[in-house]
Amino acid sequence: MGIIMNYYLIGVENKSESIVANAPADTKLAHELVFEINEEELPFSLNLFKVSMTKKGLVESEDFTESENPWLDYLPNSLVWPLMSIKLKNVIANNLIGNEGIEWVKAKVYLKNEPRDYFIPRFNKKMDVLNQNKTKYVPGTDQIIKPSFSSSKISNYSIFHKPTMFWKITNEIYISEKIKKNIEENGLTGMTFEETSVSA
């Protein structure tokens, strides 16, 4: 029996003061857009805001003068999609095994008048990665409560998605230990890592 490797779910850091890239107000909901985005670049841009919790509730601002660098490598956004800097994209791209079937969609993000390119990974195939016997489902449905991944299946990938309805572009992305270490070694920002269940 081989060694079972660790894989991690990428998450967004929770802070009292958040940086968020907002899509235009008239943008369709993310799940409606997932199967419409077939180009190499989003047909709209996003704008960067600082969101703070105050006594009056949530307040949006474009004033970053007293903030840390707002250009996080894993950037929270109103679509709840994995929005990655060029540095993070390169770390992942340089560690792909070749079976992942990832394409990159460019997204233009503006801070006032300053644009930067970010990238969204889009999967072109639905992956068979679950250990069906150990994955927990909502009784009588195929809705996953807690996934358990098959070590033999995911050994073919350095990054993969949970096989949900909207798998092409999803915030539920899992990465290998090697990619996690590369991210940490490069000091990339905006992410948390949650170890996931992997079984034989």
Results as ranks from 00 to 15, higher is better:
residue 79 L to D: 05
residue 66 E to A: 04
residue 95 N to W: 05
residue 120 I to N: 02
residue 52 S to H: 03
residue 112 K to Y: 11
residue 64 F to I: 12
residue 103 E to M: 03
residue 144 I to N: 09
residue 92 I to Y: 02
residue 46 L to V: 02
residue 36 E to L: 05
residue 159 I to L: 11
residue 147 P to I: 14
residue 89 K to S: 02
residue 181 K to Q: 14
residue 168 K to I: 03
residue 38 N to C: 09
residue 58 L to I: 00
residue 179 I to Q: 10
residue 29 L to P: 09
residue 105 V to F: 00
residue 124 N to V: 07
residue 171 N to A: 13
residue 188 L to M: 12
residue 54 T to Q: 05
residue 94 N to T: 05
residue 133 N to E: 14
residue 172 E to K: 14
residue 53 M to W: 00
residue 86 I to Q: 03
residue 128 D to L: 05
residue 57 G to P: 00
residue 25 A to I: 12
residue 45 S to T: 12
residue 106 K to E: 09
residue 1 M to V: 01
residue 2 G to N: 05
residue 91 V to N: 04
residue 74 Y to Q: 08
residue 44 F to V: 01
residue 107 A to S: 03
residue 181 K to F: 07
residue 189 T to P: 09
residue 69 N to F: 06
residue 167 W to M: 11
residue 24 P to M: 07
residue 38 N to Q: 14
residue 182 N to F: 08
residue 101 G to Q: 01
residue 85 S to L: 08
residue 171 N to G: 08
residue 107 A to C: 06
residue 91 V to T: 09
residue 175 I to L: 13
residue 108 K to A: 08
residue 171 N to E: 12
residue 68 E to R: 09
residue 16 S to W: 00
residue 122 R to I: 01
residue 123 F to P: 01
residue 24 P to G: 07
residue 31 H to M: 13
residue 168 K to M: 10
residue 46 L to S: 05
residue 14 N to M: 00
residue 182 N to M: 12
residue 113 N to Q: 12
residue 45 S to C: 10
residue 46 L to C: 10
residue 193 F to H: 05
residue 116 R to Y: 00
residue 177 E to T: 12
residue 23 A to G: 04
residue 6 N to S: 13
residue 2 G to H: 01
residue 200 A to H: 08
residue 183 I to S: 10
residue 192 T to I: 04
residue 87 K to R: 13
residue 73 D to A: 11
residue 146 K to T: 14
residue 148 S to V: 12
residue 40 E to Q: 05
